[in-house]
């Protein structure tokens, strides 16, 4: 019975989370223009509840990696991600953040997922605003299904702790 109540409670919490994503825009390159377009009134990401960019990782739960990530930026990106409170989600915006794109060389990281776990990848150079909105809806589904990277990790940690407690009893 308790199980059922907590799971329903989590569903309600996730419903709230998916419509109030606070994004941290980690904007490094030309994809930033398209990000501005998505945020501006014409495409209006506010319709999906994710209009509020917080420029502090501690106050945001959606990391948007917009643009090329270089190897030199890796530690900074990792640190921003570590500073975000759980549960948190990551979108790789554009082909450079997803795979490195056409930069196959010494300085570009082959995808931001080398450093942080990414939930949704948006291809395109740069992606159309519609693709971004589509990705946001995919992410909302994922949040509701509780299978974002961060949610799965929290669940795994919870199970491990429960098992450990049962062993100690």
């Amino acid at each position: 019975m308790l199980e059922l109540v907590t799971s329903k409670l989590e569903d309600a919490a996730n419903w709230g989370r998916k419509f109030s994503l606070f994004s941290y825009p980690f904007v490094t390159a030309c994809c930033g223009m398209e990000f501005m377009s998505v945020a501006a009134p014409k495409y209006d990401i506010a319709r999906f509840g994710a209009e509020f960019p917080r420029f502090s990782p501690r106050q945001s739960d959606l990391l948007m990696i917009v643009g090329t990530i270089t190897e030199k930026q890796g530690p900074a990106l990792r640190r921003v991600w570590e500073q975000m409170a759980e549960p948190k989600w990551v979108i790789a915006f554009g082909v450079c953040a997803s795979t490195g794109g056409f930069y196959q060389n010494y300085h570009a990281m082959p995808g931001a997922d080398q450093v942080v776990p990414v939930d949704v990848y948006i291809p395109g150079c740069p992606p159309r605003p519609e693709q971004v909105l589509d990705a946001l809806i995919l992410l909302q589904d994922r949040i509701q299904r509780k299978d974002g990277h961060s949610q799965l990790r929290l669940k795994r940690e919870k199970i491990v702790m429960r098992e450990r407690a049962a062993l100690e009893d």
């Binding site: 190897e71 530690p75 196959q104 010494y106 080398q114």
Partner: peptide
């Protein structure tokens, strides 16, 4: 210099 040689500063610990 090898075209695809990478010298990463940081990688995901789980990868």
């Amino acid at each position: 210099y090898p075209k695809e040689k990478r010298q990463p500063l940081v990688r995901r610990p789980d990868l």
